[in-house]
Amino acid sequence: MIIWINGTFGSGKTTAAYELQRRINKAFVYDPERFGYVLMANVPKEIAKDDFQDYSLWREANYRLLKQTAEDYDGIIIVPMTLTNEKYFDEIIGRLREDGIRVAHFTLVASKSTIQKRLSKRWEGKNSWAYQQMKDRLQSLENSLFKKHIQTDNLSIEEVVETIAGLSGIELKPDHRSRWRKKLDRLAVTAKEIGIVKQVKG
């Protein structure tokens, strides 16, 4: 089974994915973005596209690898990835479903002001790519294709994780971490993601 967590940049996808992984007996976080960064780093700037999702190679590779992993792995695969193009959605998630693979898809949504606050916590200002993409991505994700929508403005990470698990029919393990341990774990995830972006762009 694949759980795809969609949402605009700053919606909390990656944090929710790793928190969900910690509370499932056997789960793996698959991040399609990593392959995108490698792809972008190996294409001459003169012919590079602005968004790695626009490469058919990125879409095909992720479809094939997710398909193989889902067929071979007996745990839950969690995919935190913004996907707002209907054609691209069909080329990856649509094809996986046609192959008989269960893909539970959820979109984390929040108000523009909430997303802005979350991006600022990631040190992404108004000139950042994520910030500039926000408006169009939020509008695209309103499409019914990207349901189920989970409104997160007033939800804690724990509540988001529990909502996803409940809708997916997954039983969660108890979380015995202290409040500070949770914060440290989440900061580590954020730092890792920011580090990957800087390393590739640098």
Rank of each mutant, 00 (worst) to 15 (best):
M40C: 07
P80F: 11
I157A: 05
K112N: 09
R122Q: 12
M134A: 13
S128A: 11
I78K: 00
L65W: 09
S178A: 09
V43P: 01
H105R: 03
S140D: 15
G100S: 12
S113D: 15
G166E: 10
E86L: 12
K117F: 06
L145A: 08
V189H: 11
I5H: 05
Q199R: 13
L138A: 10
T15H: 03
N154I: 06
L184K: 07
K67W: 08
S113V: 15
T84M: 15
A41E: 12
I157N: 02
H149M: 13
F106T: 02
P174W: 04
L145S: 03
D74Y: 06
S144A: 14
R95G: 11
I3E: 03
E193I: 14
I196V: 14
R59K: 08
Q68V: 14
N127Q: 13
V200Y: 11
R95T: 09
V29P: 02
R34Y: 15
I170T: 03
E71G: 09
L167P: 02
I150R: 03
T190H: 13
L96M: 05
I2D: 04
K173N: 01
A130I: 08
D54V: 05
I2W: 04
A188H: 08
R95K: 15
V197E: 04
G10F: 09
S156C: 08
L172H: 00
Y88R: 11
Q151P: 01
A48C: 05
T114M: 14
R181F: 06
S113F: 11
K126F: 15
Q21N: 04
I77D: 07
F52L: 06
K148R: 13
K45S: 15
E71F: 14
G10Y: 10
S120Q: 12
F9A: 14
T14W: 03
E162P: 00
L83G: 06
N127K: 10
V79R: 06
K182I: 13
D51H: 08
K126V: 15
I78E: 03
V189N: 02
H149T: 05
Q21F: 04
G75R: 06
D99K: 12
S140V: 04
I194N: 11
Q199D: 03
E60A: 12
D90I: 13
Q21Y: 01
P80E: 14
A165I: 00
K182R: 14
T163K: 08
N62Y: 10
D54Y: 14
V161L: 02
N62L: 07
T152Q: 06
L108P: 03
G100W: 14
S56T: 12
V109P: 01
S178Y: 03
E162K: 03
L141H: 05
I164N: 00
N62E: 07
D185N: 11
Q116M: 08
K121Q: 14
V189K: 03
F28I: 10
I24N: 01
S168D: 00
F35Q: 10
G12M: 13
L145V: 15
P32E: 04
W123L: 11
Q151L: 10
R102Q: 12
K147V: 06
D136G: 08
G169E: 04
A17T: 05
T163Y: 00
V79K: 01
N154Y: 07
S128K: 01
I157S: 02
